[in-house]
Simulated assay, not measured.
Amino acid sequence: MDNRAFKAMIVTETEEKQFVRAIGERHVDDLPVGEVLIRVRYSSLNYKDALSASGNKGVTRRYPHTPGIDAAGIVAESSAPNVKPGDEVLVTGFDLGMNTSGGFAEYIRVPAAWVVPLPAGLSLRESMIYGTAGFTAALSCLRLIDNGVAAGHGPILVTGATGGVGSIAVAILAKCGYKVMAATTKGAETSYLRQIGANEVISSSEVDDQSGRPLLKPRWAGAVDTVGGNILSTAIKATRYGGTVTCCGNITSGELHTSIYPFILNGVSLLGIDSVNCPAPLRRRVWKRLSGEWKLDHLDTITTELPNLEALDERIGLILQGKNRGRAIVRIGD
């Protein structure tokens, strides 16, 4: 392919700690080394993208930069024997959109090991409705199930339930027959959460215990925590004997203050969820579930589709203000 120009979001540090983002022009030769060049059709907006697009150097060290930790599209060029031009593929996780030029662009170039063939049963658009958030939610649910938490054991708590990970976790668990208790700060979204499968909606304040007690009255058989901090601590303390809590986010805090008592007296398991460097066999297993038995019936209910890259700016502001609901995807090419 010639050194063609393409559109991309470009975030630039204009002076120390001052950043601007704009849709500009890049060239294929500007992209990093990799075996696979992909013409992007859809991407999605995650909290990590909003941080990168705002100059957060805990996510992205070097600017100018193109964010976008998710991308789905068609292979334009490939030197890898197992990836062919014309293949429909997706990329989530690894370093895409962090320090490697990401999916908020018409082209990405990545190592072949990052590329996942589009699973049968999913369109490129649907794969980005899931994206990293949906993959993380599904991985959390899979770990709960693999660790022995059955639907008959009691309700499953999902924190940050209106967010991307939370919304999809609620929907997957409901589809699998679990009773779901959705915790949110957004009481106005109760009908939305019930629509996607929540049996009960509670305020996040009910999962923010300030008593200092090491154990609380058991309320749920397991939990998918997306926010961290004291809410995670509370979720652990109120989990029933033998239950499991998964942890995948730190939007409230990266610190965890608890005691060993839930673990040694109630046999609670705490499982960390890493969707970035997830091994390929597990990654494909999760995507197979999402395209098959866990494919959601109401994907559009949780989705806002942005028509182009220019529409990302406003949505980035909403996600940083905590006003985002569900998933936002962006259409990049025809």
Rank of each mutant, 00 (worst) to 15 (best):
D225H: 05
A238V: 02
R194D: 02
E314G: 09
T190V: 09
N3S: 05
A235E: 04
G34E: 10
V201W: 00
D87Q: 07
T14S: 14
Q210N: 09
E305Q: 08
T258S: 10
K288Y: 01
F104A: 01
T190R: 15
T239E: 07
V245E: 01
A238W: 00
E206P: 02
K186M: 15
G103L: 06
L142W: 12
G93L: 06
S211H: 03
P218M: 04
R194A: 01
V33D: 15
A238C: 15
G93T: 03
G317L: 11
T185D: 14
C278I: 15
H153S: 14
I129E: 03
R143V: 04
A22C: 04
H65R: 11
L290V: 13
C248H: 09
R325A: 05
D49N: 08
V158T: 14
G121T: 07
G333C: 02
E206L: 14
V245A: 05
K17Y: 10
E314T: 15
I264E: 00
A5G: 08
D49V: 05
G148A: 10
I329Y: 00
V227M: 10
A138L: 11
S233Q: 08
V180H: 11
R283H: 13
P64M: 03
D274I: 01
T244Y: 06
F94R: 04
R283S: 08
L290H: 05
G166Y: 12
N46S: 06
R39W: 00
N250S: 13
E126Q: 15
G272K: 08
L282F: 12
S79G: 02
L142I: 03
F94T: 01
Y42W: 13
T246H: 10
T136M: 09
A311C: 02
F6Y: 13
A71E: 02
E293V: 08
A137I: 10
T184M: 14
D300S: 14
A151D: 03
G212T: 04
Y261W: 11
K179Y: 03
R194Y: 00
I319R: 09
T162E: 12
A223D: 01
P81Q: 00
A105Y: 00
Y63S: 03
D225T: 07
G121I: 10
N56S: 14
D209T: 06
S52N: 06
Q321S: 13
D146A: 11
N308Y: 00
K48P: 08
T234F: 08
L318P: 03
Y178R: 09
V227D: 03
L309K: 11
G242H: 04
I231Q: 11
W220P: 00
P281D: 12
A22N: 08
K288S: 15
Y63G: 03
R125I: 04
F135M: 06
C247A: 15
M98D: 04
A150G: 14
G148H: 07
P214M: 09
